[in-house]
Computed example of a mutant assay.
Amino acid sequence: MELSILLLIFGSSEQFRRVKAIKNTLRGRRTVSNLYWALQYGMLDFVDALHGVDFDSDEAALNQLQTHGLVKADDSFQFQLTEAGIAKKQQLLSELLPIKHLALGSQYDVAKFMRRFNFAVQIVSEYSYSNNKYYPQSINYFEDQLLKRWFVQTKDYDLPHQFHDLLDTFLSSLNSDDLAVIFAQSLVGHGYSGLTVDQIAAEHHLDPTIINIQLIQMYGALLELVLKRPQDNSFVMLTAGLEKPVIAKSSKETFEMFVRQGNGNLNEIAKKRHIKLTTVYEHLLEAAILLPVNQFPYHDLIRSKMRQYLETIHNENVENWSFEAAQKEMPNLTFFEFRLFQIYRSKSADEN
């Protein structure tokens, strides 16, 4: 995908944003730094939404946008949209479903569901023509076995008719003939090999990156439709194992140990878990960023004196706070407490 297009979609005219932070958020690089900036950019719902996607280089993407006057940037690869950039962003968004439909990729492996469903369509299409001699799509062994089990369990329940009804309901819900056609063109079936993203893009006069995003959005919407159906529906097996954890497993273990412990001794947690104290800090910061503000014990981790001081100096633009400046006023202030308070203020503002 073209990174420049995604930078426009997730860029801002009011805030300089880091190219790498946006890219790493979408790819699911879950460092505390990336998650923190995702919070500041309002992108937490899109963490890992484009898992495994390849992008072009940061410098090339930024240079392209600057050349066309769409952004202004500094030497540290931070950028802000110009008026022309805002107009281009609106044009791109008009070609997509509401951007919220991309966010499901943060909760579920939509790309895997896309591969499963497309293969399932081929299987059912050939089955409806009583054809058992065809070249199946390439898919890994475990997915292949899941699809075989699914077909054996559901083929006697008028599967072609059920598929027709599901697709009819879904494509109608898009309220867009163009999107419905694009979705159908991507499928593989009896006597039809489907079109590639580049072929679809050429036919519809759109950038291939936009087609890719449209497909991810549409499959996310289709996945939501299947998930809302009764658990005994014929398509439920296609959704098995797709859910992603909100917090990384190791971070969750550290956070839950802290909650159970009750005494706030982080050194004890580090010793019991055989990890460094700095890793404990990172795990707790991840939990603070990703959990609702009322589910994280901020007051147990920020000393009251430090909290009172930070309350007196805080301003609206918390991402611009300087730890060095704050530490000069309070030498005992730790970066862990400082960052926690930034997270608390940001999430409190968002949830209010």
Rank of each mutant, 00 (worst) to 15 (best):
Leu225His: 03
Thr312Met: 11
Asp177His: 13
Asn263Cys: 09
Leu195Thr: 02
Tyr192Glu: 14
His101Pro: 00
Leu266Gly: 09
Arg260Ala: 14
Arg229Ile: 01
Gln199Arg: 12
Tyr135Pro: 01
Phe170Gln: 04
Ser125Arg: 09
Met1Ser: 08
Leu166Gly: 07
Glu243Ser: 02
Leu225Arg: 02
Asp74His: 06
Leu44Asp: 11
Arg149Val: 14
Glu253Gln: 14
Thr279Glu: 10
Ile275Leu: 08
Thr31Asn: 08
Arg149Asn: 15
Ala240Pro: 01
Ala201Asn: 04
Asp168Trp: 09
His204Phe: 13
Phe79Ile: 06
Lys228Tyr: 05
Ser348Lys: 12
Ala60Gln: 09
Arg116Tyr: 14
Phe335Glu: 15
Gly262Leu: 11
Phe79Met: 08
Leu206Gln: 10
Arg27Cys: 13
His204Ala: 11
His204Asn: 12
Gly191Leu: 10
Gln64Arg: 12
Phe235Asn: 10
Gln153Glu: 15
Phe113Ala: 05
Gly264Met: 08
Ile182Phe: 03
Lys23Asp: 09
Gln185Tyr: 14
Gly11Glu: 02
Thr312Val: 09
Leu147Ile: 08
Lys100Gly: 04
Ala60Tyr: 04
Gln122Met: 15
Asp109Val: 02
Leu206His: 01
Met114Glu: 15
Glu311Cys: 11
Ile289Cys: 10
Arg30Gly: 05
Lys89Ala: 08
Glu203Pro: 05
Pro136Leu: 08
Val318Ser: 07
